[in-house]
Design a protein around this nucleic acid. Sequence first.
DNA 1: CTGGTTTTTAAATAGTATTTTTTTCTGTAA
DNA 2: TTACAGAAAAAAATACTATTTAAAAACCAG
Lengths: 232, 232
Amino acid sequence: MRSELGVSLAYGLLATLGQSIVTGEFDKTGFPTEAELCVKFGASRTVMREAVKMLSAKGLISSRQRQGTRVEPVENWNLLDPDVLRWLMERPYSNKIFLEFAQMRLAIEPAAAALAAENQDRPAIASIREGLQAMIDHAGQPDLALKADIDFHVAILKASGNPFFWRLKPLITNALNLSIQLTNKIAGHMADIQAHESILVAIEKGDADTARRASEAILVESVNLIGKVQAA
Amino acid sequence: MRSELGVSLAYGLLATLGQSIVTGEFDKTGFPTEAELCVKFGASRTVMREAVKMLSAKGLISSRQRQGTRVEPVENWNLLDPDVLRWLMERPYSNKIFLEFAQMRLAIEPAAAALAAENQDRPAIASIREGLQAMIDHAGQPDLALKADIDFHVAILKASGNPFFWRLKPLITNALNLSIQLTNKIAGHMADIQAHESILVAIEKGDADTARRASEAILVESVNLIGKVQAA
DNA sequence: CTGGTTTTTAAATAGTATTTTTTTCTGTAA
DNA sequence: TTACAGAAAAAAATACTATTTAAAAACCAG
């Protein structure tokens, strides 16, 4: 049996099961046995075991012989996994996690901006500028502007030269897609081009402190905005 | 065939293959085919495929039909995965990654300390104090002091109340084990108890700014120390 | 450049091994 | 005779093996 979406069967099951778990579908009934899952999804045991292994690698479940497979408590879920975070953000009643995510960005991105100013990786800084230019060029087209906004922020992570920051790219890309849409929805809010530009200018000048503060300014604004959305 | 170490066969293979990949063992020869791996490790195809699936979930390899399995470029490896980071830190010539890791801590931990001061989660703050007390009590015993030091830092992440910070626990625990040993080795250096205590006091008082600065002080010191080790 | 061949992973199928819980049995002491 | 402790057996679930078929992509012959 082939999956409908072009992805492999195992990855299709991974997504289906992952979403079910974060929405609490197995909270009461407990997680099914391998055999039950195979029947339910019409997949072979081999494929099902691969999917289960990947879910347990993400911290969502754990399996033990004779005891079966159990959903792990939420605090063991790997929020830093892009899939896990997306599943969580897509489910209903996910307001809190948007705020917590914004708090984490507030720790990461100003530090990355400061490092980028020190690091002076010219090609990487050029892609920050490209992101900003795309934001300006597509100001009227929400989808393209969203993508450009994300590119801008991710390019700063790259320019920091620190692979730990750069590694957050898939996480941030994924989450910003949902996060920016949320803030734009309520207030008719649009990204502040000037604020973004002032980060870039500081990085280009090699002024780490100013870059840090400019990044902080945008993110504090973002945290406040999400707080407002939640109140509404 | 059962594994020697009590871990499951798939997890044993995961570790063996993961370490081989980060030390560059397959750089020249290319990654073996499933069949070759099965022969080499005497495992069944199913188990081998589970291990390969987990490695690809960590970004180290990718598989495509007919093309075989390939080692991904380093920038695709998931450094935020505790296993991947440990494998990288344990291999020779890993100095750079220690510095980069310290830079990331410098972004995260002061922010977590500030949030902890605002959050005032009493039980969590109590465990920070327990960590500090253990550092004092076991000052003469390197192993216990190391563990206490780690407990202290991790407890701050917990006290922040932000699950993204808390999620870094396995990563930080793993990496600090190797990192603190590195800094202690060279200089005959010991953890600075007073500096640690000043973070705790600020958190207890609810003074976010002071907590942030105290945490920064320790980590800047740590970054410098690692820089010195590299010079040596 | 086209169509078949080959290679390699993807998936399915069936069965064995192992572990751990639960139940049942049994022997002994009150 | 009953109660209980401990041992033995059964059962349930995952862990693992072995093999086969399918599909995709590269390769090669014509």
